[in-house]
Each structure stands twice: as structure tokens, then as C-alpha cells.
Design a protein around this nucleic acid. Sequence first.
DNA 1: CCATCTTTGTGCACGCGTTCACAAAGGCAT
DNA 2: ATGCCTTTGTGAACGCGTGCACAAAGATGG
Lengths: 285, 285
Amino acid sequence: MATGRTHRPASRSRGIPEATVARLPLYLRALTALSERSVPTVSSEELAAAAGVNSAKLRKDFSYLGSYGTRGVGYDVEYLVYQISRELGLTQDWPVVIVGIGNLGHALANYGGFASRGFRVAALIDADPSATGKITAGLPVRHTDELETIIRENQVSIGVIATPAGAAQEVCERLVAAGVTSILNFAPTVLSVPDGVDVRKVDLSIELQILAFHEQRKSGEEALAAAAEAADADGPGTRGKPEKSQKATPLAAPAKAAKAAVKAAVARKTGRSGPDGEVPAVMPA
Amino acid sequence: MATGRTHRPASRSRGIPEATVARLPLYLRALTALSERSVPTVSSEELAAAAGVNSAKLRKDFSYLGSYGTRGVGYDVEYLVYQISRELGLTQDWPVVIVGIGNLGHALANYGGFASRGFRVAALIDADPSATGKITAGLPVRHTDELETIIRENQVSIGVIATPAGAAQEVCERLVAAGVTSILNFAPTVLSVPDGVDVRKVDLSIELQILAFHEQRKSGEEALAAAAEAADADGPGTRGKPEKSQKATPLAAPAKAAKAAVKAAVARKTGRSGPDGEVPAVMPA
DNA sequence: CCATCTTTGTGCACGCGTTCACAAAGGCAT
DNA sequence: ATGCCTTTGTGAACGCGTGCACAAAGATGG
Ligand SMILES: NC(=O)c1ccc[n+]([C@@H]2O[C@H](COP(=O)([O-])OP(=O)(O)OC[C@H]3O[C@@H](n4cnc5c(N)ncnc54)[C@H](O)[C@@H]3O)[C@@H](O)[C@H]2O)c1
Ligand SMILES: NC(=O)c1ccc[n+]([C@@H]2O[C@H](COP(=O)([O-])OP(=O)(O)OC[C@H]3O[C@@H](n4cnc5c(N)ncnc54)[C@H](O)[C@@H]3O)[C@@H](O)[C@H]2O)c1
């Protein structure tokens, strides 16, 4: 998955837990697929399998919405699709603006997954004058100067930021000032927004780093230390070859000496990638 | 944010909680910025603000890694960058393949955020014969036939899926069979993988739906019901104008009659978007 | 109309994550 | 050296989310 919400701690809005809200779109997707296959009803067990969750969790989630199932039978697919759509606010049309029509912005603009869920791209906005006017995904790219006007005229309340990180906060502020109250941020920055504005972020880099963490664990604890030391000294061939780890005090209180040593090594490395022989990642006390 | 992990419930690998792992990249980014400004040390308070989290949380997170701070002073920036990088496995090089070079795949291939964190795009793979061979972001697009060879030769353990949803599971299986053990999935599907394989998903559509949910709450509970009914009947002008909510029995047990009525209405609507006068979203008992 | 069987809805317990609050640690000035 | 002041590291309390397990509901067949 990508990431979690940023602000507003955990205010379960009127009884529906945030974790449940995050799963509703998942259920909806599975239900839509069933609906297209004209399946009339589905049990919690089947639907849970399709959505990749626990069936008890699914039933509890639905219980927050009301009693929409029939014991002994299951849930009526069409009815549930409607109820979830309504709960998520997908029965109305949400105009969205995308700001920053670069690599990612182009992909987003061409993405079909918007319209299929009630989200309508109202405008594409970019600061580059040479980009404005170009037709992208059937829409002309508008200049940033028009941002406020576009937001107001189209009653846009959801904005997508796909600008470089440096511009994100500024763009965010302009969006908010113009009336946007929900932001989906693709730039790798922490956005600060006033209360009442929701920010969700999608950060590819973070996802990869989390995967790398687990990947590293899979190859054994110590490979990393070896790799870290050997990184600039030798070529390939060392990977995945542990060296016998003294797992005692794995990360326990490094003495001052150790800190200083590593710090020095790091400094050396940062400055220029010179050879460094002894870099004790874990130091004996 | 994008999304959460899919499989492997909550196995805190060797003591570091999953929630903490997910925040380490955030800290790392903030620390890198400080490092570039040559800031020598930083307090938990400052760093927490930069990363957008609570300072107590940050300190506790760091405590899982070891005692890396100095009381009365704070944390040494360079040292912490090194420790977190090491913990996340970023001191080694991670070759990555991107499968599905369409709109999104192109954007990903051109994304600079990979290399800056130790992720190297080893290959771009697509099934479309007319696409193969084309140079994208400095790399030739390779045909799916070569997938297994590419994975093995480059020792790739992380795969990114950016194909249409229908192809995702199949691609996933081929990746896993070839040796990939971590997958970042952009296709809106639930992937099933064997134990030991990590899947994280990024789903733009889900993020927007979650935003829509909260957005809807902001405009008052009932606007939705009104909008739902009026959706195909009238034009703009109704939005964001609450009408005084009768919050009694918001979603309480609808009687059989109500279910049937709504279901009928839904069916009507699904078939063709004809006019529907009375669609009781919430029915009096 | 009754028995049986399926499946929902939920009470309950448990574990993870968050946050508070504070003692201990260490730097720094005197 | 001594005391002060800042900031870490963590014990403890709390709340949310998850999953088990089961009683009640309802459909279905006889
Ligand atoms: N490309 C990806 O796959 C990818 C993946 C994850 C995250 N991101 C992030 O998404 C953002 C965009 O990535 P990209 O690859 O599309 O970059 P890009 O440089 O191709 O596009 C950025 C666009 O934003 C425009 N822009 C700059 N400042 C602006 C401003 N103040 N107002 C409006 N528009 C402005 C630029 O003109 C440009 O068209 C970056 O922050 C990047 O880190 C990209
Ligand atoms: N474009 C976006 O902004 C965006 C956003 C979120 C999610 N997504 C999802 O990402 C995926 C890709 O989106 P897109 O807009 O790039 O679609 P796209 O149709 O432009 O690209 C898909 C690419 O995958 C290739 N492909 C198809 N089957 C394949 C296979 N079996 N093996 C290898 N390659 C195969 C196609 O040739 C094509 O080049 C979709 O699942 C989409 O739902 C896209």
C-alpha cells in the first residue's frame, strides 16, 4: 500500500472507524465485479476472500453501516453496492483538479480510474507557460494563474498535487485558500494545512523503502553490515553471504567511541567515496 | 497516503514495529534535508515537526533502533542518517523491474526518486510487441518473454506492477516464480502470493474515495441523500448547502420494505438513468 | 408448522500503537 | 567540581483495530 492519512489523528467521523472507511472502497470494487457478473447475493466469506480480508472483519465493517445482510443467505450485491457508494459519497460528482502536469500528472490525467468512480477531472494546471494550452487527455492545460478562478468556478473541493516537492507547499496553500478542503499529495513533502483540510499522501519512495526493509530481513540480519562496509571497497559477489553474527546486543548502547568512529567514517564517505577499512557498525563495549 | 501492506499480519520483524518501519523513511527524508543544509544536530522536537509526527513517537521509534541521541543536545544528523539507512537496507543496491510500461509505467521509469535512495531500475518490461525496443528513460523496453531471464540475471528481488488489473495476478505469479519476493502493485486488484512474499499496493482510486468520504461529512450528513436523489434531476447549485439534519436513526435498521424499495430504485437506475422521483435513502420504520 | 442448516451480527479478549509524563543523563556555564 | 537546564529514553495508561466464537435470525425443505 501507499501511505496513511497525515493530519486529523483518528476522528472516527460519526461512528465509522477510519480503518473501516479505508476498506470500503475495497469491498466496493469486489462487489462491482460481482455485480457485473450478475451475481445476486454473496456471503461474507466469499466477499472477504475477494477483497483479501478476514470475514469477521468484513462483517463488523458492514455492521457499522447498518444491518444490510440476510442471515442464512448473505448480502444482496446491488443493494450493498448502493449503500457503500452512498456512504463514501460516490453518488455525487466530485470535480478534481490536478496540479503539476509532468510525468506523473500526465499519467494521472490519462487514468481511466477517475471517472469510473464519480471523480471528474475539472482541470489540469501547470506553472510552465510552454506547457499551457496543450491538450492532454482531452483537456487543455491551464496556467497556474488561473488556479483560483478554476477552483471557484467549478466548485472543486479535491485537489491532486503532482508538482516537484519544492512547489508543493505553495500550491497546497493556494488550493486551500481557494476553497479546496481535500488534497491528495504525490510530492515527497510533509504538507501543513489548517484544521478541516484533509491530506492524504502517496509516496512511492516510502513504499519501496519499506519493501527493502523486509527484503533485507529475509536475507539475514548481518548481510547488511557486511554490505555496508564492503559497499565501496569491492565489487559484486558479497551479497547475501553472512559472516556469523554475534547477535548479543544487536543494537544496544554503542559507546561514545563507536559513535565517533562511525560518524567519522560517514563524514569521510559523504565527502568523497574514499576507502574505509574499519567501520565498526556494532562495537564491543 | 496510499495504502497499507497486504499480507503478513503484523510480524514485527526482530523487534521493530511495522508502524515504526513505515515512518523511518519519513525521518530519513527530513534528516537528509537537514544534512544538506549542514545542520549538525537536531532535537526530537524539531525533527518531529519536520517529519509531521509527534515527538514522543519519534523518540520511541528511535529507541527501537538503539540509543542514538545525546540528552540535552539531540541527535547527530549524519549519524542518524547512516543508522536509518542501514536499518532500511539502503546501504545496498536494490535492482527493481517495472512491468507494464503504459502511462503510469512511463512516469515511474522517468522518476528520479528511485536512484536517489538506492533503487536501480534494472529493466522495463511490457507485453506489447510494438512497445518493446523503444528507449524509455534511457532503457530499452524488454518483452515479457524475457521476464524470467531478466529477473535471474540481475538478481532482482523487488518488482513493480503497472499493468492493467486483469494482467496483474499473472504477472505477479511470474515474478514470484522467477524469484521476486517483494512487489509494489499499482493495479487495482488483490494479489494473492505465497508466504514469504511481501506485497504493498498503491491505489489512487481508494485514496480519492477516502477523501470523498470525509469531504461528504464536512458538508453535512444529508447533503448526500439529497444529492443522490437529485443527481440526475438537476444541475449544479445544491452542493455544500446543508439543510438541517435530523440525526436521529442515521443508518438504523431499515425495514424490509425499505430494502426492497431502494433495491428496486437501484435496479431502475442501473438499467438506464431514467427519472426517479422517490428514492428513500433512509426510510421511516 | 416444525426442524435443520446456513450465515449474520456482535460480545469479548487481546495485542499493537499512541501519548503522557517524568526520571535520568549529559552538556555547559560558573 | 558543582549546579542548572535541556532533552532523551521509557514506564505506564489508554484507545483502536482485529479476530474468535457463538447466539440469534432467517431461509429452506419436509
Ligand atoms: N514520476 C513518478 O513516477 C513519481 C512517482 C512518485 C512521486 N512522484 C512525485 O510527483 C511529483 C511530480 O513528479 P514528475 O515526475 O511528474 O515531475 P515532473 O518534473 O515531470 O513534473 C512536474 C510538473 O510540475 C510543474 N510545476 C512546477 N512547479 C509548479 C507550480 N508551482 N505550480 C504548478 N505546476 C508546477 C512543472 O512545470 C512540471 O510540469 C514529484 O514531486 C515527484 O517526486 C513522481
Ligand atoms: N495512470 C495512472 O495514473 C494510474 C493511477 C493509479 C493506478 N493505475 C493503474 O496502473 C495500471 C497501469 O495504468 P496505465 O494508465 O499505465 O495503463 P496503460 O494501459 O497505459 O498501460 C498498461 C501497460 O501494461 C502493458 N501490459 C498489459 N498486459 C501486460 C502483461 N501481461 N505483461 C506486461 N505488460 C502488460 C500494456 O502493454 C501497457 O503498456 C492500471 O492497473 C491502472 O489501473 C494507473
